[in-house]
Design a protein around this nucleic acid. Structure first.
Lengths: 127, 127
DNA sequence: CTGAATCCTTTCCGATACTG
DNA sequence: CAGTATCGGAAAGGATTCAG
């Protein structure tokens, strides 16, 4: 990208997009990020709020996000242990672009569904 | 989402984001989309321009994008056959949000790299 | 409560060969 | 040129068990 914010090549842009998709393109990251967008949460809070996630996946997802500085992890040394996860400043800006993605989907989900039905008709058109 | 563009719940937003990530979260979709952002391309043109992609993956990626109305496929009935792929109107709007994603990454790649190095130091701190 | 470790299934995707 | 078909390795992720 140059100073004006324009991309030199399609490959350059594609490279950057792949970088971020490698982080949040997995099954659970964006779900956790959206959930933390409403404020800090404890481990089992997140677990209960995130339908279908296993302990293993929540744990590894959080650690990956923490490693990249998107989520912070705060341990309160009490008994029983209390651990709070929250979005960092970086994480909050990421939530913004994730929200933009959600908005696009919301606006196009109908067209896409229609295109898909149309395609399926045309292809294996049982005639 | 309501008429004002606000989300009712984190889960609603997360659901929409997962929908789109299920489409473009794979290894090649966004690369192909970025490439088609510079104009229509033929199959082997895309293949050569997209380093590392196999015929099989390019083919299946294009078909998936075509099915969802993101990419159009135009066959010119000549000999040899000539097939052109291009972004649809929907595809162009998607390229915009993909570009926003790339821009975010470009702006945060340094912080993320630093956070990662820092995390790796702190964790298996051999000390 | 907050995890880590192990096992096992499923999905993704690369390599290769073949076709109109 | 523009694909499809089949195979096999690698990786993601779910189920379950154990631990501080």
């Amino acid at each position: 990208m140059d100073e004006s914010g324009n991309w030199h090549t399609a490959a350059e842009r594609a490279g950057f997009v792949r970088d971020i998709l490698d982080r949040i393109g997995d099954k659970w990251s964006v779900i956790v990020i959206c959930r933390l967008g409403t404020g800090p949460h404890r481990f089992n809070e997140l677990r209960r709020a995130t339908e279908g996630i296993t302990q293993r996946m929540l744990s590894s997802t959080l650690r990956a996000l923490e490693r990249d500085g998107i989520v912070s992890r705060t341990v309160h040394p009490t008994v029983p242990p209390r651990v709070e996860y929250a979005l960092t400043e970086t994480g909050r800006t990421l939530l913004d672009v994730v929200t933009a993605l959600a908005r696009w989907t919301d606006q196009h989900v109908d067209v896409i569904r229609a295109a898909r039905a149309d395609y399926d008709d045309r292809t294996h058109a049982t005639a």
